[in-house]
Structures are given as C-alpha cells and as structure tokens.
Amino acid sequence: MTEHETRPIRSSEDVVIVRQLVRAWAIRLGFSLVDQTKIVTAASELARNTVDYGGGGIVRLEALSDGRRIGLRLTFEDKGPGIEDLALALKDGYTSGGGLGLGLGGAKRLSNDFELVSKPGEGTRVSITRWR
C-alpha cells in the first residue's frame, strides 16, 4: 500500500471524491465501520471548508504507525484568506459563511488528534488523525 497520497480539492464534486478516497483508505487500514464513518464525515467537513473558505486546496492522506497502533492522518491545506480568530472558528454554531458552524469543531470531535494552523492572508492547514 502506498503510504501517502495527495489530491486536489476544488469543487463540491471533489468533496465527494475525497469522501470515497478516505473511505477506501480507512477500509484498507482495517478501521471499524463506526470509525470509518467518523473519519469520512470529518474529511467531508474539512474538504468542504477547503472549497468554500479556502478557495480550493489539497488533501494529503498518510498511513501512520506508532509501533502499537495504525493511524490515518488527513491534512487539508489551502492558500485562502486564513482564519483571524482560531478559537472563534472552532466554536460550535459560529460561521463566517452560510453553514451551521459545526464543520471545524465537529471534525475535531470526530478525530483523535487535531491540529489547526492558519495565518490571515496566507492560508490554513488542518490536520486530523484517527487511530485504530
């Protein structure tokens, strides 16, 4: 199995492709159905953010192993306007667009590890990992 893969995300069709790709990786890594569903749902939220707020970007999928556990890490990167207030962006119900404001916070809850790096004017990188 390839240990990593990168795909562009530009449109809402690409969000569907990312969901399918993450599902295929989660199945190959032996994740349970519930864990597959959680990471695919988190990926869907973050891929949509990449399109809607970042103006498009990429996702990188990586298989991880810490010696005991197998993990799947997804990193979403865009060169969009970035996020001014990270704490506010993570708050449930807050949105600068037209959504429900559950995307970032929801993706964080559905993952084991979560990292958000953003600089206004430079872009955003969100990384999530789910361990099996």
């Binding site: 519930v34 597959q36 569903t37 939220e45 449930d92 429900l100 559950l102 929801g106 809850r109 559905l110």
Partner: peptide, 14 residues
C-alpha cells in the same frame, strides 16, 4: 438511518 451514521451525526453536534 444507519447506526454508524447516527453515532457520527450526534458526535458531530447534529
């Protein structure tokens, strides 16, 4: 609704 979807949806906050 599938059980895994229900679990995920509630954890998502919906």
């Amino acid at each position: 609704m599938r059980p895994a979807v229900a679990i995920t949806l509630v954890e998502l906050g919906l």
